[in-house]
Design a protein around this nucleic acid. Sequence first.
DNA 1: CAACTGACTGCCG
DNA 2: CCGGCAGCCAGTT
Length: 108
Amino acid sequence: MPRSAARPGPSSYDAVYEVVRLIPAGHVMSYSGVARQMGRPGLQRMVGYALRALKDSRGPAVPWWRVVNAEGRISNAYGPELQRAKLIAEGVAVSADLRLDLAAYDAE
DNA sequence: CAACTGACTGCCG
DNA sequence: CCGGCAGCCAGTT
């Protein structure tokens, strides 16, 4: 079995967690939005790294489900349905297509 | 030090 | 609407 290749460690992730943690319930933020808030515009991929690491190894209490892509769609590759359920539980309308009105829930 | 990978994004066909 | 390609940065191999 191919052990996960390239697995960044928790260094720059700290900044990501801090920003994501500040997203109020019922709101969402795009990966690029988080990157920008943490003073690192263009590091959307790093945000994705950090969130993936949460599943790999338990990190701080981070509402990762409030992070969606720039189109307001869930690009979660591990449990899109779980994320959708979490958002709906907070009052965010997510369609069966895993899409939501980013402009309406944008926390930026 | 070079190559590879990835919960992204924007542009093209 | 969907798939492919390039640009992007940090961390692992």
